[in-house]
Design a protein around this nucleic acid. Structure first.
Lengths: 345, 345
DNA sequence: TAAAAATGCTTAATCGATTAATGAACAACC
DNA sequence: GGTTGTTCATTAATCGATTAAGCATTTTTA
């Protein structure tokens, strides 16, 4: 049995499809449809359980009520959760989301973008990956609406909703220093992405603002593609006796996971052998034998705001540019316990 | 600048849109298009960077090349990963996936289903939640193609791809018994879902096959909605002196997370105070101070196979029913270490 | 009372692609 | 020369909904 269409209703009511369309779109007033017949049409529509055909509507209107969400790495629970928030918020507004993960790969991101453009999504929310600046430029040139989420490019003027990574990282450093640690390392990705650059900058400033001279071998930048091995090497080096660090900041969730695994292997005790603060958030941090201090980003708010701004742009293409930085919150746990506390034990 | 359409090409080539359509769909032979003009059309199409309009195609053909994926709980990393696999596999076949999580809520699942039907997805892959049998029946009645993934209903004849939960659970029990544990508890959900019933059944049979008499207070069935508190109570009861268990199986990832948190709180040592085996898989299990033994389900294969079968059904609606059970693999780690080993330490 | 305005509904084009049916031009055959 | 066949291309309907324009009526206005 086929779906009921406007035509079916029109036939049954003995009127034209135009009239049915007017009634069901609440345009009876403007188009002067008779009350009696309007009521009849509505009844028949209900009776036949009429559901408008999205495709036909979209074809006509050019609007699909669909948002394309491109995520740099969906296996990261932070992103997975943000995807969920975006999906929920979009649904609340009558939009459907098509999600794609590019796995930090610009080529894959480009493919995804094309699939989504082809599907005629109305707009994009994008967590960019390294080397995808050209894609953002492309969207700008083609005048396709989008909002960057969590990551942005300072050299490209775009809307974005992101975390203040400088501040977050600075806070992490300050927190460790206040807890009595001085030799503090940072494991980050080797990347030119702005969020990473900012995390490194914040860390350095936290040190220098507290008269701790930054030592270049406290900073380890590892390759995403070779993370597991690189993190091990980095930790080995950070713990080599000459410049042994007593605390360590992980610039991402993935780095923390790999780092903690290795720290376990080495049978190092957190925080007495090595204090830890990490970006990202996940159940692991709670469950670790010594719960991990982490920077909680305003996940819900980031996701919701990005949807909100995108939808605003869709409604009004001339909407002004929005560039929002939100603050992360440091959640202090035992992994960065004040040095004095465990020294006393 | 608007997208180029068939019409634009037709105009530029001085032919009808029909001819252009034939050429670009590779039907030149059947429809006897002249070679010269065919070449010309192809060149113009390339020059104008023609991309067919999905909406128009879909409207005409009734096929959207889209799959609806309904997941019971996307915050569970097992499901998140399976969603990824499904998405990748679908993309490889030219299909786009629309994902929705119903958060184990049948009403939400129903809403999702309707959104997706409305979007005219070609078919569904569904990880069902409790109380959604009627939805499956509905799909059957309306003759909408679908494949159940990971969970299925024994009373409804459908295609499905799932894990042999009985066997997995049985294996978990056997493994613990072989490791020297006898008083073994199970924390599961209170649920009539078949996968849960099977997990309980497997556990019981493992005991009875080894002449261990099952004690009813070894089995704790908790409410999904009140998991955190219920798990604590369950563990408290399982450890109450009269019927203290020495090993514990968690029937799901979520239960394990909550359980392990509480076990940490209680400062119990795994495995000497309590040995652990869990369903699910996630980085947490590796990272726990005592790595957790778990049942690895064939995630990739489950996802891929479900897509494969669904696509087969889409191509040929009369395709026979497929009901596949795959085996989980027990990954032994320290949390279920042989009793003799830690007794000796 | 004739022109203007309001009322209630229909026609037909449109979005972009597909495809059955048809047609025109020319060659081949008896 | 008329019939049949082949080749190459066009016409027009269709998918389902939207909407500007148009067409009868009836009512109002001058």
């Amino acid at each position: 049995m086929k779906k009921t269409s406007l035509k079916d209703i029109a036939q049954k009511a003995g009127v034209s499809t135009a009239l049915v369309s007017y009634v069901l779109n609440g345009k009876e007033k403007e188009t002067r449809v008779g009350e009696v017949i309007a009521k009849k049409v509505r009844e028949i529509a209900k009776e036949l359980n009429y559901q408008p055909n999205h495709l036909a509507k979209s074809l006509r209107s050019g609007k699909t009520h669909t948002i394309g969400l491109i995520i740099a790495d969906i296996s990261n629970p932070f992103f997975a959760n943000i995807a969920r928030v975006v999906e929920d918020e979009a649904k609340r507004n009558g939009y459907t989301v098509i999600i794609g993960s590019c796995d930090e790969n610009a080529d894959k991101s480009w493919d995804l973008l094309n699939v989504l453009i082809n599907r005629q999504v109305d707009g994009f929310i994008i967590v960019s990956c390294e080397g995808s600046e050209n894609q953002i430029q492309y969207l700008k040139e083609r005048n396709l609406p989008f909002v960057l989420l969590d990551r942005h490019f300072p050299d490209i003027q775009t809307d974005f909703v992101a975390t203040n990574n400088y501040k977050a990282s600075y806070d992490a450093g300050i927190h460790l220093i206040k807890s009595g640690y001085e030799r503090i390392g940072l494991i980050a990705y080797k990347s030119e992405m702005y969020h990473m650059v900012e995390r490194i900058r914040g860390y350095k400033y936290a040190l220098s603002d507290n008269n701790i001279e930054f030592e270049s071998n406290w900073l380890k930048e590892v390759m995403f593609e070779n993370m597991e091995q690189d993190v091990k090497t980095a930790i080995d080096e950070l713990l080599a006796s000459e410049h042994k660090v007593e605390a360590l900041i992980f610039a991402t969730y993935g780095l923390a996971i790999n780092g903690l695994k290795y720290i376990n292997e080495l049978r190092l005790k957190v925080p007495s052998d090595l204090a830890i603060v990490s970006f990202g958030q996940a159940e692991v941090f709670d469950l670790y034998y010594c719960p991990i201090t982490y920077l909680r980003q305003p996940l819900e708010l980031l996701g919701k705001t990005s949807v909100e701004y995108l939808l605003k742009k869709l409604k009004n293409p001339d909407e002004g540019m929005k560039q929002i930085l939100m603050e992360a919150k440091l959640i202090a746990r035992d992994s960065s316990m004040a040095k004095s506390v465990w020294l006393a034990e």
